[in-house]
Simulated scan of single mutants.
Amino acid sequence: MKIIRSKSFTAERAWGALDIANLNGTTVRLHWTDQPYKWHVNDGEEVFAVLDGTVDMHYRERSETGVSEHVAVLETGDVFYAQVGCEHVAHPRGAARILVIEKEGSV
C-alpha cells in the first residue's frame, strides 16, 4: 500500500516521472512538467489525467481530405483519451502534474 501526494511531486527535469504501478504491462506514472512534450503516437491506448495545472493538448485527426489540428484545454480533473494512432502533444501552461496510464514502453 502507498499513498502519493501528487500536489507535492516535482521532478528534476520536465516530464520526470514517478512510477506508481505496472498492471500486467500497463504502466501508471505521475509526471511533473513545465515544458511541452513532443509530437508522438503511442504504441497503444493512453489515458492522460491532469491532476494539477492546465495543459493544452494538441492533437491531429486524419480524414480523406487531409489532416486537421485541434487543441483541447485540459484543466485539473480533465482526462484525455488517446486511441491507437492518435498523434498528440501536451503543452502545459506553467507547471502541471499528470497521471499517465499506457502500455509499458510507450513513447
Rank of each mutant, 00 (worst) to 15 (best):
53 G>F: 09
93 R>D: 15
90 A>P: 07
73 V>H: 06
94 G>N: 10
60 R>Q: 13
57 M>Y: 07
80 F>H: 08
59 Y>N: 06
83 Q>A: 15
72 A>I: 12
63 S>A: 09
69 E>F: 06
57 M>T: 01
89 V>L: 07
70 H>F: 15
81 Y>A: 06
69 E>G: 07
71 V>G: 02
92 P>V: 04
97 R>N: 13
86 C>L: 12
75 E>G: 05
54 T>C: 09
63 S>P: 03
64 E>D: 14
88 H>V: 11
69 E>Q: 14
65 T>I: 06
71 V>R: 10
95 A>G: 14
55 V>F: 06
90 A>K: 03
60 R>T: 04
96 A>N: 08
62 R>T: 14
74 L>I: 01
67 V>G: 01
84 V>E: 12
69 E>I: 03
56 D>P: 00
55 V>Q: 06
69 E>P: 06
82 A>Q: 04
84 V>P: 07
60 R>E: 11
65 T>Y: 11
97 R>T: 12
62 R>L: 12
61 E>P: 01
53 G>R: 10
67 V>Y: 02
63 S>Q: 02
86 C>A: 12
90 A>T: 03
85 G>W: 02
80 F>Q: 07
59 Y>E: 05
75 E>W: 01
59 Y>L: 03
56 D>W: 09
60 R>N: 03
78 D>L: 02
72 A>V: 15
59 Y>F: 15
80 F>E: 02
72 A>D: 14
92 P>A: 14
91 H>A: 04
93 R>W: 04
93 R>H: 11
94 G>H: 09
53 G>S: 10
74 L>V: 01
79 V>R: 01
96 A>V: 03
73 V>M: 04
90 A>S: 15
63 S>E: 04
70 H>V: 01
71 V>I: 15
86 C>E: 14
68 S>H: 06
88 H>G: 10
87 E>S: 10
58 H>P: 01
79 V>C: 13
81 Y>C: 07
97 R>E: 06
60 R>V: 08
91 H>R: 09
56 D>L: 14
64 E>R: 13
61 E>H: 03
58 H>W: 12
96 A>L: 07
55 V>Y: 06
86 C>D: 13
66 G>T: 11
57 M>D: 08
89 V>D: 08
90 A>D: 01
96 A>H: 01
87 E>H: 05
79 V>A: 13
85 G>C: 08
83 Q>D: 14
62 R>K: 14
88 H>Y: 12
85 G>E: 05
55 V>W: 07
59 Y>D: 08
71 V>A: 04
95 A>E: 15
79 V>D: 01
88 H>S: 08
61 E>K: 14
88 H>R: 13
68 S>Q: 13
70 H>P: 00
71 V>S: 02
56 D>Y: 12
69 E>V: 09
77 G>W: 07
80 F>C: 03
93 R>F: 02
54 T>W: 01
82 A>R: 00
70 H>S: 11
72 A>K: 13
